[in-house]
């Protein structure tokens, strides 16, 4: 009896939080799945099953395929760009040098600011007439005419990717720093004694030992970037002429601008499954690391 009460203690402790998470995060998934199979009026009234017509509509929509394609480019470019910059940055920040504390604070700064604010500021900074980016480039003599950065889709999308990279650097650097700081110092000392050059140390010690952290950084970033609405939404709202639409902006427009709720639910659900696949990959990666770390259990 006493034993049974004791056993239920941890369950009682996790239950309230679990209930909230199921209600707020679990229920909408079922609602979306349910809705995606039905005809829906502009005002959200379900008017009967239509046998996957919403999905057919989604797959028949060229805008969906364009957005999907652009989502791929956006995700790939931001994630790889972020990694390419974060790795050397993390290695520098892991080393000892004058002003490291300050350098860390500056590098982490974009993390502190909401994406919305960042995007608002960049939208102004990139203003085609009076934007201060133009001012800077003209002062430096790089251009002599202001550029309408956000007025054409191709430049706008590139700029948005760059901003995306900028705001992803702090998080990625943090993960990589966590990995670097757990690196065994004696392995490097041994390598130096064995005559390894700086490049060799990086290639044969840092990189292999960092691999789990790099993997996790990639998967987490893929998930975050894939889902990121504010930058593109605030800077161009997917425009001009849907030229910078990715899945999330397309979804948001369908749902809250055009009132095509059935189609929007279908896209939500498709995205949910993509996300689920990435999450499983992440869970697999994390649990593999856990296993690697698990030392033979000491007697307790």
């Amino acid at each position: 009896m006493a034993n049974r009460i004791q056993k239920s203690v941890p369950l009682m402790m996790i239950l309230p939080g679990l209930a909230l998470a199921v209600a707020i995060i679990g229920y909408p998934i079922f609602d979306l799945a349910w809705t995606s199979l039905q005809d829906v009026s502009r005002f959200g009234k379900l008017t009967g099953f239509n046998g996957g017509e919403n999905y057919a509509e989604v797959f028949g929509d060229p805008l969906f395929w364009e957005s999907l394609w652009r989502t791929g480019i956006w995700t790939l470019a931001v994630v790889l760009g972020t990694l390419a910059i974060s790795m050397p940055v993390a290695m520098i920040l892991n080393d000892d040098f004058y002003g490291r504390g300050l350098a860390r604070v500056i590098i982490m700064l974009p993390w502190a600011i909401s994406l919305t604010m960042t995007a608002v500021v960049w939208r102004w900074a990139l203003n085609g007439r009076a934007g201060l980016l133009n001012a800077t480039l003209m002062n430096a003599g790089i251009i002599d005419q202001p550029i309408e950065w956000l007025a054409t889709a191709s430049t706008a999308f590139v700029v948005e990717i760059l901003v995306g990279i900028l705001v992803s650097i702090p998080f990625t650097t943090t993960i990589l720093l966590g990995g670097l700081s757990s690196m065994p110092q004696d392995a490097y000392e041994a390598a130096v004694v064995d005559g390894a050059s700086g490049w060799h140390q990086f290639r044969y010690i840092t990189l292999p030992l960092m691999k789990p952290f790099i993997n996790i950084a990639i998967v987490l970033n893929v998930i975050y970037v894939f889902n990121s609405l504010p930058i593109i939404w605030v800077m161009t709202e997917g425009g001009p002429a849907n030229g910078t639409d990715i899945l999330v902006t397309y979804l948001y427009k369908l749902a809250f601008r055009f009132g095509q709720l059935g189609k929007a639910s279908a896209i939500s659900l498709i995205m949910f499954f993509v996300l689920l696949a990435f999450t499983m990959l992440y869970v697999a990666l994390v649990s593999r690391n856990d296993r690697d770390d698990a030392a033979p259990e000491e007697e307790v």
């Binding site: 679990l18 998930i223 709720l261 939500s268």
Partner: peptide, 27 residues
């Protein structure tokens, strides 16, 4: 169920509001 709960937490961590926003709005 500790392992299952941990996995569930990871899943919710990964679920971004944007994917669920329509369902949340309806809720």
């Amino acid at each position: 169920g500790k392992g299952a709960y941990r996995t569930f937490l990871l899943m919710t961590q990964m679920m971004s509001p944007i994917v669920l926003v329509l369902g949340l709005f309806r809720l």
